[in-house]
Protein backbone atom coordinates (compact mmCIF):
# COMPACT_ATOMS: atom_id res chain seq x y z
CA UNK A 1 0.00 0.00 0.00
CA UNK A 2 1.31 3.42 -0.96
CA UNK A 3 1.73 5.70 2.02
CA UNK A 4 1.37 9.07 0.30
CA UNK A 5 -1.19 10.83 -1.81
CA UNK A 6 -0.90 13.63 -4.35
CA UNK A 7 -2.42 16.77 -2.88
CA UNK A 8 -3.40 18.35 -6.20
CA UNK A 9 -5.54 15.33 -7.07
CA UNK A 10 -7.19 15.03 -3.65
CA UNK A 11 -9.58 17.97 -3.63
CA UNK A 12 -12.50 15.53 -3.63
CA UNK A 13 -11.77 14.92 0.07
CA UNK A 14 -13.21 18.37 0.83
CA UNK A 15 -16.38 17.51 -1.11
CA UNK A 16 -16.60 14.30 0.93
CA UNK A 17 -16.60 16.46 4.07
CA UNK A 18 -19.39 18.60 2.60
CA UNK A 19 -21.44 15.47 1.82
CA UNK A 20 -20.92 14.09 5.34
CA UNK A 21 -22.11 17.28 7.02
CA UNK A 22 -25.13 17.57 4.71
CA UNK A 23 -26.06 13.92 5.26
CA UNK A 24 -25.99 14.54 9.03
CA UNK A 25 -27.76 17.89 9.04
CA UNK A 26 -30.88 16.65 10.83
CA UNK A 27 -28.92 14.39 13.20
CA UNK A 28 -26.63 17.24 14.32
CA UNK A 29 -29.56 19.60 14.90
CA UNK A 30 -31.38 16.92 16.86
CA UNK A 31 -28.41 16.39 19.17
CA UNK A 32 -27.99 20.15 19.56
CA UNK A 33 -31.70 20.54 20.29
CA UNK A 34 -31.37 18.47 23.46
CA UNK A 35 -29.14 21.00 25.22
CA UNK A 36 -28.54 23.83 22.74
CA UNK A 37 -30.31 25.98 20.18
CA UNK A 38 -30.98 23.09 17.83
CA UNK A 39 -29.32 24.87 14.95
CA UNK A 40 -25.94 23.14 14.74
CA UNK A 41 -26.81 20.99 11.75
CA UNK A 42 -28.48 23.90 9.97
CA UNK A 43 -25.47 26.19 10.48
CA UNK A 44 -22.85 23.62 9.58
CA UNK A 45 -24.76 22.49 6.53
CA UNK A 46 -25.17 26.11 5.41
CA UNK A 47 -21.41 26.77 5.63
CA UNK A 48 -20.26 23.47 4.10
CA UNK A 49 -22.80 23.76 1.27
CA UNK A 50 -21.51 27.24 0.41
CA UNK A 51 -18.02 25.76 0.18
CA UNK A 52 -19.16 22.81 -1.94
CA UNK A 53 -20.93 25.16 -4.33
CA UNK A 54 -17.85 27.39 -4.58
CA UNK A 55 -15.54 24.44 -5.31
CA UNK A 56 -17.86 22.81 -7.83
CA UNK A 57 -18.24 26.15 -9.66
CA UNK A 58 -14.53 26.17 -10.51
CA UNK A 59 -13.49 24.83 -13.94
CA UNK A 60 -11.02 22.44 -12.29
CA UNK A 61 -11.53 21.09 -8.78
CA UNK A 62 -8.77 22.66 -6.65
CA UNK A 63 -6.33 20.47 -4.74
CA UNK A 64 -6.67 19.55 -1.08
CA UNK A 65 -4.74 22.51 0.36
CA UNK A 66 -6.68 25.07 -1.66
CA UNK A 67 -9.96 23.26 -1.04
CA UNK A 68 -9.41 23.30 2.72
CA UNK A 69 -8.53 26.97 2.54
CA UNK A 70 -11.78 27.66 0.67
CA UNK A 71 -13.65 25.68 3.34
CA UNK A 72 -11.98 27.72 6.09
CA UNK A 73 -12.79 31.05 4.47
CA UNK A 74 -16.38 30.03 3.66
CA UNK A 75 -16.99 29.03 7.27
CA UNK A 76 -15.47 32.27 8.53
CA UNK A 77 -17.54 34.33 6.12
CA UNK A 78 -20.69 32.25 5.99
CA UNK A 79 -21.49 31.07 9.51
CA UNK A 80 -20.98 33.13 12.62
CA UNK A 81 -21.62 31.95 16.13
CA UNK A 82 -18.83 29.87 17.61
CA UNK A 83 -18.59 27.23 14.92
CA UNK A 84 -17.52 29.63 12.14
CA UNK A 85 -14.30 30.73 13.85
CA UNK A 86 -13.59 27.34 15.47
CA UNK A 87 -13.89 25.20 12.34
CA UNK A 88 -12.59 28.07 10.20
CA UNK A 89 -9.41 28.09 12.28
CA UNK A 90 -9.14 24.30 12.20
CA UNK A 91 -9.33 24.04 8.43
CA UNK A 92 -7.15 27.10 7.97
CA UNK A 93 -4.50 25.41 10.12
CA UNK A 94 -4.69 22.25 8.00
CA UNK A 95 -4.52 24.25 4.77
CA UNK A 96 -1.54 26.31 5.92
CA UNK A 97 0.47 23.19 6.71
CA UNK A 98 -0.33 21.54 3.38
CA UNK A 99 0.28 24.64 1.25
CA UNK A 100 3.40 24.36 -0.90
CA UNK A 101 3.62 20.55 -0.62
CA UNK A 102 3.16 18.10 -3.49
CA UNK A 103 2.38 14.99 -1.52
CA UNK A 104 0.75 14.19 1.77
CA UNK A 105 2.52 11.63 3.93
CA UNK A 106 2.05 10.47 7.50
CA UNK A 107 4.38 13.09 8.98
CA UNK A 108 2.81 16.01 7.10
CA UNK A 109 -0.68 14.90 8.11
CA UNK A 110 0.46 14.90 11.74
CA UNK A 111 1.86 18.42 11.36
CA UNK A 112 -1.33 19.64 9.70
CA UNK A 113 -3.55 18.08 12.35
CA UNK A 114 -1.50 19.64 15.13
CA UNK A 115 -1.57 23.01 13.38
CA UNK A 116 -5.34 22.79 12.92
CA UNK A 117 -5.89 21.97 16.60
CA UNK A 118 -3.51 24.80 17.55
CA UNK A 119 -5.65 27.15 15.47
CA UNK A 120 -8.75 26.12 17.41
CA UNK A 121 -6.89 26.58 20.69
CA UNK A 122 -5.85 30.11 19.69
CA UNK A 123 -9.35 31.27 18.98
CA UNK A 124 -11.30 29.33 21.60
CA UNK A 125 -10.72 28.75 25.28
CA UNK A 126 -12.23 25.30 25.85
CA UNK A 127 -10.22 22.54 27.49
CA UNK A 128 -10.67 18.79 27.29
CA UNK A 129 -13.54 17.92 29.64
CA UNK A 130 -15.60 21.04 28.93
CA UNK A 131 -17.97 19.06 26.66
CA UNK A 132 -16.96 20.64 23.36
CA UNK A 133 -15.30 19.63 20.11
CA UNK A 134 -11.96 19.70 21.97
CA UNK A 135 -12.97 16.39 23.57
CA UNK A 136 -12.83 14.86 20.09
CA UNK A 137 -9.93 16.86 18.64
CA UNK A 138 -7.29 16.66 21.34
CA UNK A 139 -7.38 12.86 21.89
CA UNK A 140 -7.32 12.44 18.09
CA UNK A 141 -4.18 14.54 17.78
CA UNK A 142 -2.51 12.74 20.70
CA UNK A 143 -3.35 9.27 19.39
CA UNK A 144 -2.08 10.09 15.92
CA UNK A 145 1.15 11.51 17.31
CA UNK A 146 1.68 8.47 19.56
CA UNK A 147 1.00 6.05 16.70
CA UNK A 148 3.63 7.69 14.49
CA UNK A 149 6.10 7.72 17.36
CA UNK A 150 5.60 3.96 17.72
CA UNK A 151 6.34 3.47 14.01
CA UNK A 152 2.81 2.92 12.74
CA UNK A 153 2.23 3.52 9.03
CA UNK A 154 -0.08 6.32 7.76
CA UNK A 155 -3.22 4.23 7.48
CA UNK A 156 -2.79 2.58 10.88
CA UNK A 157 -2.10 5.94 12.50
CA UNK A 158 -5.35 7.24 11.01
CA UNK A 159 -7.21 4.24 12.46
CA UNK A 160 -5.76 5.00 15.88
CA UNK A 161 -6.72 8.65 15.48
CA UNK A 162 -10.34 7.74 14.69
CA UNK A 163 -10.57 5.29 17.58
CA UNK A 164 -9.40 8.00 19.99
CA UNK A 165 -11.67 10.61 18.40
CA UNK A 166 -14.66 8.31 18.79
CA UNK A 167 -13.85 7.61 22.42
CA UNK A 168 -13.44 11.33 23.09
CA UNK A 169 -16.68 12.14 21.30
CA UNK A 170 -18.58 9.48 23.28
CA UNK A 171 -17.05 10.77 26.53
CA UNK A 172 -18.99 14.03 26.08
CA UNK A 173 -22.17 12.15 26.97
CA UNK A 174 -21.06 11.85 30.58
CA UNK A 175 -19.68 15.36 30.84
CA UNK A 176 -21.28 18.50 32.22
CA UNK A 177 -21.01 21.45 29.84
CA UNK A 178 -18.73 24.12 31.24
CA UNK A 179 -18.61 26.45 28.26
CA UNK A 180 -21.00 27.69 25.58
CA UNK A 181 -24.77 27.89 25.63
CA UNK A 182 -25.25 24.37 27.07
CA UNK A 183 -23.45 25.44 30.25
CA UNK A 184 -26.72 27.08 31.28
CA UNK A 185 -28.17 23.66 31.96
CA UNK A 186 -25.50 22.67 34.49
CA UNK A 187 -26.00 19.04 35.52
CA UNK A 188 -28.90 18.71 33.10
CA UNK A 189 -26.38 18.77 30.24
CA UNK A 190 -25.10 15.36 31.36
CA UNK A 191 -26.37 12.35 29.42
CA UNK A 192 -26.41 13.93 25.98
CA UNK A 193 -23.63 14.00 23.39
CA UNK A 194 -22.16 17.40 22.54
CA UNK A 195 -23.14 18.55 19.05
CA UNK A 196 -19.76 20.13 18.24
CA UNK A 197 -17.88 17.03 19.38
CA UNK A 198 -20.22 15.00 17.17
CA UNK A 199 -19.67 17.04 14.01
CA UNK A 200 -15.95 17.01 14.77
CA UNK A 201 -15.91 13.22 14.93
CA UNK A 202 -17.82 12.97 11.66
CA UNK A 203 -15.34 15.35 10.03
CA UNK A 204 -12.25 13.50 11.27
CA UNK A 205 -13.73 10.12 10.34
CA UNK A 206 -14.53 11.27 6.81
CA UNK A 207 -11.14 12.94 6.46
CA UNK A 208 -9.31 9.78 7.55
CA UNK A 209 -11.49 7.48 5.45
CA UNK A 210 -11.08 9.57 2.31
CA UNK A 211 -7.30 9.76 2.81
CA UNK A 212 -7.08 6.00 3.40
CA UNK A 213 -9.07 5.30 0.22
CA UNK A 214 -6.50 7.27 -1.76
CA UNK A 215 -3.57 5.50 -0.15
CA UNK A 216 -4.72 2.51 -2.15
Amino acid sequence: MAQTLTLKQSGQIVLDLVDTINANRAYLSEIDGAIGDGDHGINMSKGFTLCGDALRAKPVLPGLAEGLDTLAMTLLEGIGGSMGPLYGSFFMGLAESLAGHETLDAALFGEALANGVAGVETVGSAQVGDKTLMDTLVPAREAYRAALAEGADFSTALDRMIAAAEQGWQSTKGLQARIGRAARLGERSIGVLDAGATSCFLILKTLAGSVQQRLG
Partner: peptide, 12 residues
Protein backbone atom coordinates in the same frame (compact mmCIF):
# COMPACT_ATOMS: atom_id res chain seq x y z
CA UNK B 1 -25.57 41.61 12.35
CA UNK B 2 -25.72 37.93 13.32
CA UNK B 3 -28.40 35.27 13.16
CA UNK B 4 -30.80 35.21 16.11
CA UNK B 5 -28.79 34.84 19.33
CA UNK B 6 -25.68 33.94 17.32
CA UNK B 7 -22.54 35.99 16.79
CA UNK B 8 -22.01 37.73 13.44
CA UNK B 9 -19.28 36.25 11.28
CA UNK B 10 -15.67 37.40 11.52
CA UNK B 11 -16.06 38.75 7.99
CA UNK B 12 -19.06 40.86 9.01
Amino acid sequence: VGEIFSSPTAKS
